[in-house]
């Protein structure tokens, strides 16, 4: 078991999300930086979909009540176990009674903590993920607060610390043209502009500020299914990239979709940072996705017996 001593600004239980429920109006939810979640679980030999904690900014403190192996990934939150540094991107041993402190990121936005055996909460419609909008899943459908106690799965027999190479964040978000891209009055402006991430952004959407875009002809769109990565253009002319907690249908023009492999860059962008959209082809998008698959395949081989899913 672990106990939340200090919960941080928004700490939630997440896994890969709720799949196959969009037609009921339920968002997918799940870790915004899915590669970081997968890496954390792979480092510990957990199931890929084992629930983890997602931290957004702020100082957090957790006390462990069993010996455990932990993996911290995503943004480097300058973590310490009883005052001793625990590296981001590594698996580290923690003893029963010790306290893990995450001081918050110097760069980036979200950190992920996996524990050997996974964090255990009741699942709702096949997923442990917290849906903050509807108050479902995770711990009572809410962000963690101090005093919360979380059960842990069965411990693994791991030996030594292991680390993985860290990604480098950049602000180049690769996109495919969306179904309404050709309606833009000045399509080149979309990729040329620097878009600033607004503080009103949350797990539902990345809201952007910049020179407003407009359509050359008004467009009447019936509500249609949307998904994380869809770039909507509301009447303000300022794009919104839908993230994991977004609603499942939308009626705004869809000018682009962010490629899945780059969604983590949005998860790790901070309000005030600028982003640029880089149009790519479907083949390029698939090639980037395959490079990630190869990365995790090689990682699995490097971890050897410690990674049952390699």
């Amino acid at each position: 078991m672990l106990e939340v001593i200090q919960a941080g600004i928004q700490t939630t239980v997440q896994d890969a999300g709720r799949i196959g429920v969009g037609h009921l109006g339920l968002p997918r939810s799940g870790a915004l930086d899915s590669q970081a979640m997968l890496l954390a679980n792979r480092l510990l030999g957990n199931d890929d979909n084992a629930p983890v904690l997602e931290f957004a900014l702020g100082l957090s403190r957790l006390r462990f009540y069993r010996d455990a192996w932990i993996a911290l990934t995503g943004a480097d939150f300058n973590a310490q176990i009883d005052g001793k540094s625990a590296w981001c991107g590594w698996r580290t041993a923690i003893k029963s009674g010790q306290t893990l402190t995450l001081h918050g990121p110097k760069a980036g936005m979200r950190a992920y903590l996996a524990v050997d055996g996974g964090i255990q909460v009741p699942t709702f419609m096949g997923s442990a993920s917290t849906d903050l909008t509807s108050g479902l899943g995770g711990v009572e459908g809410r962000a963690l607060k101090s005093g919360d106690r979380l059960a842990l799965g069965k411990e693994h027999n791991l030996k030594h610390p292991v680390g993985a190479m860290q990604r480098l964040w950049d602000n180049q978000i690769r996109v495919l043209a969306g179904p309404h891209f050709d309606w833009l009055a000045n399509p080149a402006q979309f990729a040329k502009s620097h878009w600033t991430l607004l503080p009103s952004s949350n797990r539902m959407g990345a809201r952007l500020d910049g020179e407003p875009l407009s359509l050359h002809t008004p467009l009447e769109i019936g509500s249609r299914g949307v998904f994380p990565g869809v770039v909507q253009l509301p009447p303000s002319g300022k794009p919104i990239v839908l993230l994991n907690d977004a609603q499942t249908t939308g009626g705004y023009p869809i000018i682009a979709t962010v490629i899945e492999a780059d969604m983590w860059k949005l998860a790790q962008a901070r309000p005030g940072q600028t982003l640029q959209f880089v149009p790519v082809s479907l083949d390029e998008a698939r090639a980037v996705g395959e490079r990630w698959q190869q990365y995790f395949y090689r990682l699995g081989r490097a971890l050897g017996a410690g990674a049952p899913h390699a």
Binding site: I19, G22, G222, R224, G225, V226, F227, T248, G289
Partner: peptide, 17 residues
């Protein structure tokens, strides 16, 4: 198909990889 989401006279499918 992972997601089968009807909209207004339309249908969006999210397929497995």
């Amino acid at each position: 198909a992972l997601e089968i989401v009807p909209g207004m006279n339309n249908l969006t499918l999210s397929l497995e990889k």
